[in-house]
């Protein structure tokens, strides 16, 4: 087993266990912290795939900004008392069984698909994930979506302020 494989399996196990802990934790603050662990594991996968720009953006935007926003809202609501109303056991079981059935069907589909049977996600070749290549494309072909996203941010900001205002 090479070092890349060991890192891959470690990061995969970390991501799945942390994602499960997001569900299992009773305290919402713990859920946020476990979700940050998931984001770190996914950023590790991006680095492994040589997508360095996305790895650092994932850390800055998701783990840095969005999760802090979640933490602020949780602390604003004072939810860290463990008084969350629970669904009854049958509803939980039904949710878990339906999600497990979906996972089983999709995994069996993937295992049967012959088109992707011998395809490999290359780890060592290519430098398309570096910021130089992505920036050239972003400011040439994708310039209009880039500018539209700034308008989207402005409208989201105004909308959040208007919604969050009292009355």
């Amino acid at each position: 087993m090479s070092a890349i494989q060991i890192i891959f399996w470690f990061l995969s196990a970390l991501a799945i266990v942390s994602a499960l802990m997001v569900l299992i934790s009773k305290n919402p603050v713990h859920s946020v912290l476990w979700l940050i662990m998931v984001f770190f594991a996914i950023s590790g996968h991006y680095i492994l795939l040589n997508a360095q720009f996305l790895a650092i953006v994932n850390l800055i935007v998701y783990a840095g900004a969005i999760m802090v926003l979640f933490l602020f809202v949780i602390m604003l609501m004072n939810l860290n008392t463990e008084s969350e109303p629970q669904k009854n056991l049958w509803m939980k079981l039904a949710g878990a069984v339906s999600g497990g059935c979906l996972l089983m069907i999709l995994v069996s589909l993937v295992r049967q698909a012959t088109e992707i049977g011998n395809k490999v996600a290359e780890m060592k070749v290519g430098n398309i994930g570096l910021i130089g290549n992505l920036g050239k494309l972003l400011f040439s072909d994708y310039l209009v979506p880039f500018e539209i996203s700034s308008v989207l941010f402005l409208s989201a900001m105004v909308g959040a302020v208007v919604i969050g205002k009292k009355n």
Binding site: A19, L20, V22, L23, K92, L103
Partner: peptide, 19 residues
């Protein structure tokens, strides 16, 4: 797929809207 299905189960199971 595993991460996606964990997310689906979370949406179905939990009642806390932040989770």
């Amino acid at each position: 797929l595993a991460l996606f299905c964990i997310g689906i189960v979370g949406v179905l199971v939990r009642r806390n809207v932040i989770i």
